[in-house]
């Protein structure tokens, strides 16, 4: 059993007056891909945003490599080595691909150092290096959003629905990239596409209605059709 990199303990998060997370807990082991599963509205995105400090939890604890990070502002959490790939990509449409990546630099020369790695993962980005992000296709925007999280040295990547709205062939490409990224970093992945999550993840957590329902090894979940049908829809 390798070390736990991220530890979330009983967090309660509110958005406005709505109690979205009602005591979610999870552990992400270093060097693994952990999938966060559940229906729409189960609280998966809010969990990622709570970890990132964008919707800070009102109570509970979040620790990165043992150090408490709950209550820190988002930029400070990012600087501790957490990369965030949000839902709907959130790339900067008016900035060029290069500027999008450059913005993610935390130290001078980050991009130069990581450029080769990123460009072999996503050759398309090289082709459109000086084009505005808004002109890219959906799949390319997703690649850019992931690439942006790879520029700085991140220990943990929070990736929200990378396959959303993309053609199967692009999803394949992104899966291959994630698999390669997992060799050197840790990923917490939110994914509606169960087939994709099943192929990538080592472990899983299922959320329902803002609470933990079940967790374990992905290899076991694949055969548990009752759970899949009950909590993940048609699966």
């Amino acid at each position: 059993m390798s070390d736990v990199l991220l530890e979330v303990e009983h967090i309660h998060t509110f958005i406005g007056q709505f109690h979205i997370l009602e005591g979610v807990s999870l552990k992400v082991r270093a060097g693994s891909i952990t999938a966060l599963l559940g229906r729409n509205g189960a609280g998966k995105t809010t969990t990622l945003r709570s970890i990132m400090g964008l919707n800070p939890p009102r109570s509970g604890q979040i620790r990165l490599a043992g150090e408490p990070i709950h209550g820190k502002p988002a930029y400070a959490i990012a600087q501790l080595g957490v990369g965030y790939v949000p839902e709907h990509r959130a790339i900067f449409r008016d900035l060029t691909v290069e500027e999008n990546l450059r913005l993610a630099e935390r130290r001078r020369g980050d991009l130069r150092r990581r450029s080769d790695f990123i460009m072999t993962l996503f050759p398309d980005l090289k082709r459109f290096y000086r084009h505005p992000g808004g002109k890219l296709s959906g799949g390319q925007q997703q690649m850019l959003a992931i690439a942006r999280a790879l520029v700085a040295d991140n220990r943990l990547l929070l990736i929200d629905e990378p396959s959303e709205g993309l053609a199967p062939i692009i999803v394949e490409q992104i899966m291959a990239a994630l698999r390669q990224m997992a060799t050197e970093t840790t990923i917490l992945l939110v994914e509606q596409n169960f087939a994709m999550a099943a192929q990538l993840a080592d472990e899983y957590y299922i959320l329902d209605d803002g609470r933990n329902v079940q967790h374990g090894r992905m290899a076991d979940l694949i055969h548990d059709h009752a759970t899949i049908n009950r909590y993940l829809g048609a699966g």
Binding site: M52, A74, Y75, L103, A104
Partner: peptide, 11 residues
């Protein structure tokens, strides 16, 4: 465009 995302990049 998106100041929250800028924040999430560590700025």
């Amino acid at each position: 465009q998106d100041s929250e995302m800028v924040q999430a990049l560590g700025i």
